[in-house]
């Protein structure tokens, strides 16, 4: 999937994460800030990367502002931001790859 335009999902509430995706020519750029960076920074990065891989996103600038979200929340926010950047509004393929 391609990051078609800038899009955002999530909030800055505790236990949530705000994910922003923007088009980019330079492959995948991932920027993470987190209230639990010291303990979970590595796992947050892995979760976001896996989700992007599953969606077959190969380039784009992805910014995650994490407020202690669980992995399931992170996945959902990343998926939602990517879907929104593609104007996918119906029959959302949560948790699956786009064909």
């Amino acid at each position: 999937m391609i990051i078609g335009k800038s899009a955002m999902a999530g909030t800055l509430e505790s236990s949530d994460a705000q994910v922003t995706v923007e088009p980019s020519e330079n492959g995948l750029e991932l920027e993470i800030s987190s209230s639990v960076m010291n303990q979970y920074g590595r796992q947050i990065r892995a979760t976001v990367m896996q989700t992007l891989e599953r969606l077959d996103v190969q380039s784009g600038k992805v910014t995650v502002v994490d407020k202690g979200a669980l992995d399931c929340t992170l996945k959902a926010r990343v998926e939602c931001a990517v879907y929104r950047s593609n104007d996918i509004k119906d029959a959302l393929p949560w948790g699956g790859a786009i064909v």
């Binding site: 010291n38 303990q39 920074g41 796992q43």
Partner: peptide, 10 residues
């Protein structure tokens, strides 16, 4: 099992 095992602080 819910949040994952935290990495040790540096």
């Amino acid at each position: 099992s819910i949040v994952g095992k935290p990495d040790p602080l540096e």
